[in-house]
Design a protein around this nucleic acid. Structure first.
Lengths: 173, 173, 173, 173
DNA sequence: TATGAATGAGGATTCATTCAT
DNA sequence: TATGAATGAATCCTCATTCAT
């Protein structure tokens, strides 16, 4: 991946994340990246190709995260780690997650399989802990997760993330 | 408000909610509503005007909801009512809430004040209940809320809403 | 001619004169006149009909002017009267003349016959005065006329009309 | 400036000059120039930008003309040269001047400063010649100028330009 | 690889005009 | 007579994409 390819991806991510995929013209990406518009198409074929490339990179990151999770032994710790994930997102990765969340709301791009591995891990852990309805419990935790992520990604500057995390931790002693 | 105006608003809401504001051409709205494209602009000035009109209607609905909330006396009940809100959204209102949530992710339209009244009510109730950090508690509940809403609105068909709500209720006996 | 018809014509003249026929939408005329847009078409059939009606009114005024001219006996006086005409335009009639002059520059509307009667009167007077080439003399005077009119109509506020007229008069003692 | 840019400017000038700025759609310009409509906007940003570019070119021509004028030593010759200018406009430049004159009549575009340098030159020459009211004399000459220009540009085909010029010259022996 | 000129389909918006009331 | 809702063609402009260099 050349310098310019990276510049294009960076700019695209930044702009998509803040304005939404459909609201960003390729010309704006080119300008932001300091390259010609044509180059985007040479490297990524079309606008959707840009998005794919971006998601690819993101999915790889996610994979690593999943692997890190599987290193945790105790089921309780695993669940806690998952729930607290949104609070530990690297600020550098905010744009990526903003993009993912914004795309969720557009039928055309909605991609559920991203959440599946995490759900499986959760169900496994909850089953181990003998929860009566591990699936519903998992979905509930995933809902929390979405909520925390939304809050952190959108109001991270307004809201006191750390105080929120403290308050959350007290709930599960 | 004439028949056609209503038809336009309905179509716009439906399309905006499913594809996102920027992905929907006014021509598509006109076709869906069975009116000429020009009429949209006669009535709503421009595409953004359509969105405003939609949000206006929505905010009025929200206001009513807030008033209903204030009828509840016991602080605990109030909090529970708020937390369970996403599970009681009228299916007819799904498109509106999908639109609201999708817009959250676009800088240009992000409108935080919509959530403020609810936050105030929460803080009041939590203070009454002597919580140590009512603000953080409120924000945590609002985060749950966002999560439940996201889950219900996006995965309402995939996930078993009722089972989820049962599971949730057991948590606060 | 009803009140409203007059209001429409007045507004149209005012707007056409200041912005140009093609730059003025019928909606603007209707608003300025305080009537509905449909009424314009009921009374004047279409936008061009409005222009025609305006020009009709103007041509009648011009006719009167020509008749006044023909009352003047001495050929010299006639010529002087014609040359000084632009300086004596009633300020109320400025918009009409501005419109006439602006339309001159648009092929589609250029209507030369308006100037013909005046040219005939001039040639007659110049012939009487034994000018060698009365036609060329007439055209020269008409050129002056256009120049004075342009100056008065466009720069009447900037330039000192009276001083200009004094200076002009000295030329033909 | 590429071939196509020149073609666009040429076509725009031709059409604006004959029908008026507001009466010419960009689609017509594109067709006349044999380019895609989009190209107009790539190169000139918007329709007004086209006009600006046109005026820019014209102003540069005018500048040259002014410099040529300043080469003339005798004040009388200078004045005569200015007055006769309209008769010596290169036929190739007719469209440009038609455009300038047509725009004068539209508030929105009226640009007086174009005439200022010429007025200054005139006042200087007239002062040198000890005219009692050089400013009024200058404005009178500028009025003549406008009249000659109007006549030449609009009726150049109808009227005998040379005969007109001869007649004019006799006036100032 | 990289540019930037060029395209053409489509986007939002305007506007003259019609029509039911 | 007068209104104002409604239309649809046109208008200005944008944008993803192609292509010659």
């Amino acid at each position: 991946m050349t310098e310019k390819q990276k510049a294009i991806l960076d700019s695209a991510l930044k702009l998509f994340a803040s304005k939404g995929f459909d609201a960003v013209p390729t010309s704006a990406i080119a300008k932001e990246a300091g390259v010609s518009e044509g180059l985007i198409f040479r490297h990524f074929e079309n606008k959707a190709g840009l998005l794919n490339a971006l998601m690819q990179v993101g999915k790889e990151k996610l994979q690593e995260e999943m692997e890190a999770l599987s290193q945790i032994n105790k089921a309780e710790d695993k669940i806690v780690a998952i729930m607290e994930m949104p609070f530990h997102i690297d600020e550098e990765d905010y744009p990526f997650w903003r993009l993912v969340y914004s795309l969720k709301w557009q039928n055309e791009y909605y991609d559920d399989e991203m959440g599946k591995p995490m759900r499986d891990i959760l169900i496994e852990a909850l089953t181990e802990l003998k929860y009566r309805d591990p699936e519903a419990e998992a979905d509930l935790i995933l809902a929390y997760l979405d909520g925390f992520a939304t809050t952190v990604l959108l109001k991270g500057d307004i809201v006191d993330k750390d105080r929120l995390l403290q308050t959350l931790r007290k709930k599960y002693k």
